[in-house]
Design a protein around this nucleic acid. Structure first.
Ligand SMILES: [Mn+2]
Ligand SMILES: [Mn+2]
Ligand SMILES: [Zn+2]
Ligand SMILES: [Zn+2]
Lengths: 130, 130
DNA sequence: ATTAAATTTATACTAAGTCTAAATACTATT
DNA sequence: AATAGTATTTAGACTTAGTATAAATTTAAT
């Protein structure tokens, strides 16, 4: 509940993640920071990503790969992973509220949140002809 | 496409996973095997779990925790994790086909599969009075 | 200017899982 | 049954992603 403290490092990392069209891993973020001339300590990148995630300014995605990915979009949305090329796209339609209610009723849980990862084959991989 | 070869180790691990009411991690599986008097090499447990998963006899669950969990139920179903106590329960209702079709249409993917993990608070954690 | 608190840095460490090479166990063939 | 060939297990080294620690630096407060 302490107020937001955006240091140079945190600001640079936030800017970078927000500017991404994709969903980079921590390693990719470090690489891109280096390309922009920044040189932050390894641990600082991880600390900052956690800080920014906790502050709600970015999102951490666990898509079942070995490494987390990060997302500058903070509104609720989901992802779809191409099992051919690995690209990750946005899924903006939410699961129907009716289904969530059904799950809550059947499991006796208060359902707070759902993480959905679709898997499939993307358009480009489906049509390999340029 | 080679035929199934259930060695002593693989059979013991399969039996154990199928007998579980819960969704144990590899470490928990090793622990339980040891309790039953088995003593398999660390790597063998991992190899066997992969083998059995590839053969479709068990399922690997990636619920966003640090370690994979394993599931003797092979029919399609989902999971809900209690953020208070960590327990993992089954979710047997499938996402509406209509929603999947919508996602496929909007993303231009062939959607093969979806991984859904709900998060919430379980009944016992909601009602802490015995 | 002094002190205190927060952050960064470098580096050590942990946890989960994979890889490798030797030893062992199966299978098929003679 | 002996032999050779293939598959599996084993022990242990290694990898990857991330966390923890302690000293150095920065920032904020008095
Ligand atoms: Mn996204
Ligand atoms: Mn299950
Ligand atoms: Zn693709
Ligand atoms: Zn609970």
């Amino acid at each position: 509940m302490s107020r937001l403290n955006l240091t140079t490092q945190r600001k640079a990392i936030l800017d970078l993640v927000q500017s991404c069209e994709d969903h980079p891993t921590a390693a990719e973020i470090m690489e891109r920071l280096r390309m922009k001339g920044h040189q932050f300590a390894y641990g600082t990148v991880y600390n900052s990503l956690r800080y920014l995630t906790d502050a709600g300014l970015i999102r951490e995605l666990k898509l079942g790969e070995t490494a987390s990915r990060y997302d500058g979009r903070t509104e609720d949305h989901y992802h779809i992973v191409c099992k051919k090329c690995g690209r990750v796209d946005e899924v903006l339609s939410a699961p129907p509220a009716e289904w969530i209610r059904e799950v809550a009723a059947k499991t006796n849980y208060d359902v707070h949140h759902s993480q959905v990862v679709f898997e499939g084959v993307c358009y480009s991989c489906k049509h390999p002809n340029a």
